[in-house]
Simulated scan of single mutants.
Amino acid sequence: MSDQSRRMEGEGGGELSILYRENERWLARSLERRFGDQDIEDLAQETWLRLASAVSFSDVRHPKAFLLRIATNLASTRRRRRELALRAEAGAAVRDCIDADQTDRVMLIQIVLGLPESLRDVFLLSRIDGLTNAQIADRLGISPKTVEWRMTRALAHCAAQLRR
Protein backbone atom coordinates (compact mmCIF):
# COMPACT_ATOMS: atom_id res chain seq x y z
CA MET A 1 0.00 0.00 0.00
CA SER A 2 1.42 3.40 -0.91
CA ASP A 3 1.88 6.30 1.52
CA GLN A 4 -0.86 8.23 -0.27
CA SER A 5 -3.28 5.29 0.12
CA ARG A 6 -2.44 4.91 3.84
CA ARG A 7 -3.08 8.62 4.40
CA MET A 8 -6.43 8.37 2.66
CA GLU A 9 -7.52 5.46 4.85
CA GLY A 10 -6.30 7.27 7.95
CA GLU A 11 -8.46 10.26 7.05
CA GLY A 12 -11.56 8.09 6.87
CA GLY A 13 -11.56 7.87 3.11
CA GLY A 14 -12.12 4.14 2.66
CA GLU A 15 -13.88 4.62 -0.69
CA LEU A 16 -11.16 7.00 -1.80
CA SER A 17 -8.46 4.56 -0.75
CA ILE A 18 -10.04 1.80 -2.84
CA LEU A 19 -10.46 4.15 -5.80
CA TYR A 20 -6.84 5.24 -5.39
CA ARG A 21 -5.46 1.68 -5.34
CA GLU A 22 -7.55 0.70 -8.36
CA ASN A 23 -6.60 3.71 -10.46
CA GLU A 24 -3.23 5.01 -9.24
CA ARG A 25 -1.12 3.49 -12.03
CA TRP A 26 -3.74 4.13 -14.71
CA LEU A 27 -3.89 7.82 -13.77
CA ALA A 28 -0.09 8.17 -13.80
CA ARG A 29 0.17 6.53 -17.25
CA SER A 30 -2.72 8.59 -18.60
CA LEU A 31 -1.18 11.83 -17.35
CA GLU A 32 2.21 10.90 -18.75
CA ARG A 33 0.71 10.16 -22.18
CA ARG A 34 -1.29 13.35 -22.16
CA PHE A 35 1.16 15.80 -20.58
CA GLY A 36 4.59 14.16 -20.78
CA ASP A 37 6.55 13.23 -17.69
CA GLN A 38 6.95 16.80 -16.41
CA ASP A 39 5.49 17.18 -12.89
CA ILE A 40 3.34 14.05 -13.28
CA GLU A 41 3.81 12.95 -9.69
CA ASP A 42 2.79 16.37 -8.37
CA LEU A 43 -0.14 16.53 -10.75
CA ALA A 44 -1.35 13.05 -9.76
CA GLN A 45 -1.04 13.80 -6.06
CA GLU A 46 -2.86 17.10 -6.39
CA THR A 47 -5.60 15.32 -8.37
CA TRP A 48 -6.16 12.85 -5.54
CA LEU A 49 -6.16 15.63 -2.95
CA ARG A 50 -8.74 17.59 -4.93
CA LEU A 51 -10.86 14.47 -5.27
CA ALA A 52 -10.66 13.78 -1.53
CA SER A 53 -11.82 17.27 -0.62
CA ALA A 54 -14.48 17.68 -3.28
CA VAL A 55 -16.90 14.80 -3.60
CA SER A 56 -18.91 12.03 -2.17
CA PHE A 57 -17.73 8.99 -4.11
CA SER A 58 -21.17 7.47 -4.33
CA ASP A 59 -22.08 10.34 -6.73
CA VAL A 60 -19.23 9.58 -9.14
CA ARG A 61 -20.46 7.37 -11.98
CA HIS A 62 -17.27 7.33 -14.06
CA PRO A 63 -14.31 7.61 -11.69
CA LYS A 64 -11.60 7.45 -14.38
CA ALA A 65 -13.20 10.21 -16.43
CA PHE A 66 -13.67 12.26 -13.28
CA LEU A 67 -10.03 11.80 -12.25
CA LEU A 68 -8.81 12.71 -15.70
CA ARG A 69 -11.03 15.83 -15.78
CA ILE A 70 -9.62 17.01 -12.44
CA ALA A 71 -6.05 16.37 -13.62
CA THR A 72 -6.67 18.12 -16.95
CA ASN A 73 -8.10 21.17 -15.18
CA LEU A 74 -5.12 21.27 -12.82
CA ALA A 75 -2.67 20.95 -15.72
CA SER A 76 -4.45 23.75 -17.60
CA THR A 77 -4.27 25.99 -14.56
CA ARG A 78 -0.56 25.28 -14.17
CA ARG A 79 0.06 25.99 -17.86
CA ARG A 80 -1.82 29.30 -17.67
CA ARG A 81 0.13 30.33 -14.59
CA ARG A 82 3.43 29.50 -16.32
CA GLU A 83 2.38 31.45 -19.43
CA LEU A 84 1.36 34.44 -17.32
CA ALA A 85 4.69 34.33 -15.49
CA LEU A 86 6.56 34.15 -18.81
CA ARG A 87 4.52 37.04 -20.22
CA ALA A 88 5.21 39.08 -17.11
CA GLU A 89 8.94 38.38 -17.44
CA ALA A 90 8.90 39.23 -21.14
CA GLY A 91 6.96 42.42 -20.46
CA ALA A 92 9.46 43.45 -17.79
CA ALA A 93 12.36 42.75 -20.18
CA VAL A 94 10.71 44.82 -22.92
CA ARG A 95 10.06 47.68 -20.48
CA ASP A 96 13.70 47.52 -19.39
CA CYS A 97 14.84 47.66 -23.04
CA ILE A 98 12.51 50.56 -23.80
CA ASP A 99 13.70 52.43 -20.73
CA ALA A 100 17.32 51.76 -21.71
CA ASP A 101 16.67 52.81 -25.31
CA GLN A 102 14.98 56.02 -24.19
CA THR A 103 17.80 56.75 -21.78
CA ASP A 104 20.36 56.12 -24.52
CA ARG A 105 18.48 58.40 -26.93
CA VAL A 106 18.29 61.21 -24.40
CA MET A 107 21.99 60.84 -23.67
CA LEU A 108 22.90 60.87 -27.38
CA ILE A 109 20.74 63.93 -28.01
CA GLN A 110 22.45 65.72 -25.12
CA ILE A 111 25.86 64.79 -26.49
CA VAL A 112 25.00 66.06 -29.98
CA LEU A 113 23.47 69.26 -28.59
CA GLY A 114 26.65 69.74 -26.55
CA LEU A 115 28.76 69.93 -29.72
CA PRO A 116 29.97 73.36 -30.83
CA GLU A 117 27.59 74.72 -33.49
CA SER A 118 29.99 74.31 -36.41
CA LEU A 119 30.66 70.66 -35.53
CA ARG A 120 27.00 69.99 -34.76
CA ASP A 121 25.85 71.34 -38.16
CA VAL A 122 28.26 69.07 -40.04
CA PHE A 123 27.37 66.08 -37.85
CA LEU A 124 23.59 66.50 -38.29
CA LEU A 125 23.80 67.12 -42.05
CA SER A 126 25.91 63.97 -42.43
CA ARG A 127 24.28 61.56 -39.97
CA ILE A 128 20.67 62.74 -39.94
CA ASP A 129 20.19 64.21 -43.42
CA GLY A 130 22.56 61.73 -45.08
CA LEU A 131 24.45 64.33 -47.14
CA THR A 132 27.92 63.68 -48.53
CA ASN A 133 30.91 65.80 -47.55
CA ALA A 134 30.71 67.66 -50.89
CA GLN A 135 26.99 68.41 -50.39
CA ILE A 136 27.62 69.64 -46.84
CA ALA A 137 30.49 71.82 -48.08
CA ASP A 138 28.21 73.39 -50.72
CA ARG A 139 25.41 73.99 -48.24
CA LEU A 140 27.64 75.54 -45.55
CA GLY A 141 29.98 77.35 -47.95
CA ILE A 142 33.12 75.62 -46.68
CA SER A 143 35.63 73.26 -48.27
CA PRO A 144 35.13 69.48 -48.27
CA LYS A 145 38.39 69.19 -46.30
CA THR A 146 36.92 71.43 -43.57
CA VAL A 147 33.79 69.25 -43.51
CA GLU A 148 36.00 66.19 -43.04
CA TRP A 149 37.98 67.87 -40.27
CA ARG A 150 34.82 69.01 -38.43
CA MET A 151 33.22 65.58 -38.76
CA THR A 152 36.34 63.94 -37.33
CA ARG A 153 36.26 66.36 -34.38
CA ALA A 154 32.50 65.85 -33.84
CA LEU A 155 32.90 62.06 -33.78
CA ALA A 156 35.88 62.30 -31.40
CA HIS A 157 33.85 64.54 -29.09
CA CYS A 158 30.88 62.12 -29.13
CA ALA A 159 33.14 59.13 -28.45
CA ALA A 160 34.80 60.93 -25.54
CA GLN A 161 31.40 61.77 -24.03
CA LEU A 162 30.21 58.16 -24.39
CA ARG A 163 33.29 56.86 -22.56
CA ARG A 164 32.48 58.95 -19.47
Results as ranks from 00 to 15, higher is better:
V94R: 13
R105V: 05
R78I: 05
D121K: 08
S17P: 04
E11Q: 09
S30Q: 08
E11C: 01
D99L: 14
E22M: 06
E32A: 07
L125S: 03
M107R: 00
T103N: 12
R80M: 07
Q102M: 10
R80K: 13
F57M: 09
R105D: 08
A92D: 08
A92S: 11
L119R: 12
A54G: 15
L124K: 00
R87H: 11
L86E: 15
L124W: 01
L49C: 05
R81Y: 06
E32Q: 07
R29M: 08
R29E: 12
T77G: 03
L119V: 04
F35A: 02
E24K: 00
R120M: 07
R34G: 01
T47H: 08
Q45K: 12
E24H: 07
D96Q: 11
L68W: 06
N23V: 02
T77F: 06
D101K: 02
R25T: 14
R87K: 14
V55Q: 01
D99P: 00
R34K: 15
R34P: 03
I109C: 04
H62S: 10
V60W: 03
T77I: 06
A28Q: 02
E32T: 11
A52M: 06
I109H: 11
A71H: 06
D101C: 08
E11A: 13
A71Y: 09
T77E: 09
I109T: 14
V122M: 07
E32W: 06
D37R: 09
K64L: 08
F123E: 04
V55K: 05
V106D: 08
